[in-house]
Design a protein around this nucleic acid. Sequence first.
RNA 1: GGUACCGUGGCCGAGUGGCUAGGCAGUGGUCUGCAAAACCACGUACAGCGGUUCGAAUCCGCUCGGUACCUCCA
Length: 489
Amino acid sequence: MKHILSIYNTLSRKKEVFEPINPPHVGMYVCGPTVYGDAHLGHARPGITFDIVFRYLKHLGYKVRYVRNITDVGHLVDDADEGEDKVQKKAQLEKLEPMEVVKYFSDRYHKNMEQLNALPPSIEPTASGHIIEQIELVKKILENGYAYESEGSLYFDVEKYNKAHHYGKLSGRKIDELMQNTRELAGQEEKRNSFDFALWKKADPTHVMHWPSPWSEGYPGWHLECSAMGAKYLGETFDIHGGGMDLLFPHHESEIAQSNAATGHDPVKYWMHNNMITINGQKMGKSLNNFITLNEFFTGTHEALDRAYPPMVIRFFILQAHYRSTLDFSTDALKAAEKGMRKLFDAFRLLSGLKPAQTSSLDVKSLEEKCYEAMDDDFNTPIVIANLFELTRLINLVNDGKESLTQDDIDLTKDFFSTLLFDILGLIDEPEKDDSKLIDYLMDTILTIRGEAKARKDYATSDKIRDELAKLNIEIKDTKDGAKWNFIK
RNA sequence: GGUACCGUGGCCGAGUGGCUAGGCAGUGGUCUGCAAAACCACGUACAGCGGUUCGAAUCCGCUCGGUACCUCCA
C-alpha cells in the first residue's frame, strides 16, 4: 500500500505532505517535562501523541531518531514568584540536592510513560548536561549581533531580529501588537524591550544551580536548551518538532528566532502541537492546581476518581480524540473508553477461535485500507478506532454464524488488527491483576455455596469442594465462626 | 484589550458543501433455563440569527457562550 502521509504543520496552518529532509531518516524533537513534580494527565497527551507519530513513522519504514528532553534547570515556580527556580524551590522544600529532585521525578516520569506503553525516546538529553552547547549557541547569536549584554545577563534582541526575519511567524503574532501589549513589570530595566527574552541569566547569590560563562556565573535561558540540543542530535535543520500548544508562544517562537539568529535558517520543517486536556472545560495544569496525576489514576487515590483506571484506559481515552482537539476529562468519559476498549480486545481474542468457511461474505480488506487512510491523514486515531469497531462488529457476526470468512481472511484480519491495535496504537491487552482481592471474593463465594450444601446435608457436594480445593493447596477449616481457609505451604 | 481556536444528540467525540462517523448510556427485539455477551432496530445532533448556494454542521457576516496564549519569570 502506498502511503502519502500528511501532517498538520503549525507553521503553515495546514496539512502538508510529509517529506523527510534525508529519507529514510527522520529526526523528531519533542519538548519533555520539567521534572519537579509527578506527571499528570496533561503530560500523558504529548507522551502518547508523539509515541503514535514515532510508532507510525517506524511502521512506514523510516529510521527515526526521537529526541525528548528533560528540563532540569531554570524554570520558575509560577508567575507570581520572582526569580525562583522550580527545581530549586522543590529542593529547598524537601531539603534535597536539586539533582536529587530531578532524578526522583525523572524516574517516576519514565515509569509512568512505560505504564502507558509509550516507547522510550532514542535520546533523552537534559538541559544541565548541555550547558556548554547552550553557551556556544549564545556566542553565535551574540557574534551575529542579535544579542546584547546587560548586567551580566544576555538578552535576545527581538526588535533587531524582526527587521531581518519575522518574529511571530509560528504563533501568528506581529511585533507591533507585542509592542502595544507591553505591560509595565518590575525587573525589566535590563532589557531594551519587554518582549526580549533571556539567553543567559546571571544568578543571584541565592540561586543554587549556576555555571560559569563568559558573561557571568549564571544559567541558560529556557528556550535555549531545545535549540541547542535539537541541533546537536538532529542537525541544524530537522524534520519534526513537537510539543504542547501551550509552548507555541513564546517558547517555540523563540526557538525559531534563536536558530535563525545563529544559523540563518529555520531549524524545523514540520511543527506539531498537541492540544490540551481539559477538566470541567478548563485546561488541566499545574498552575491551576486542577490536575490529576497519572499515579493517582492508576491507583484511584484522587477524590475526583471513584476507582483506579489502568494505564491502557488512559491511553485509549486519549487516542479516541484527535491530538489537535481539546479533550474533556470526566469519569463517565473514562468509563466509556474502558468499555469500548474491552470490546475491541474481546473481538480480537475471538478471532483465534473462529471457524473458517469456504467463502468470505465480508470485505475486511477495505477496513484495513480505511485505517491506514486515517493514520495517513494527520494521525487520525479516532477514525482508526471507529473502523476497528466496525471490524469488531463483523468479527462478532462471523462468531454468531451470521457471516463467514475463509481461513486466509481470518489470518489477514488477525494480522492487521493486531498491527493496528498493538503495534501502531500501542495498546496492550492486559487483564487487570488484583489477585489477592479476587481470591478473597472467590473464596467467599465458594465457602458460601459449601455452607449452603452442608446446611441441607448435601455432604457429597461440600466434601467435593473441600477435596478439590485441597488439590490447589487450599485448606478449609470449619470453625465455630464459620469456615476459614488458608494456603498450605 | 490583542492573537488563535472552539461551541455536534444524555456523555465523550469524528466530520471543511450533497453520502449512517464511532464509542458509552437509554429503549424495543433476536438468542438464552435466567443473566451476561453478541446481533438487529430506534434518537430526524450540529449555540443563535442572517447571508451565499440547487443544496451547509461544513463557506461568509453578526450575536451569544467557552478555552488557550499574550512578551516579567519559566
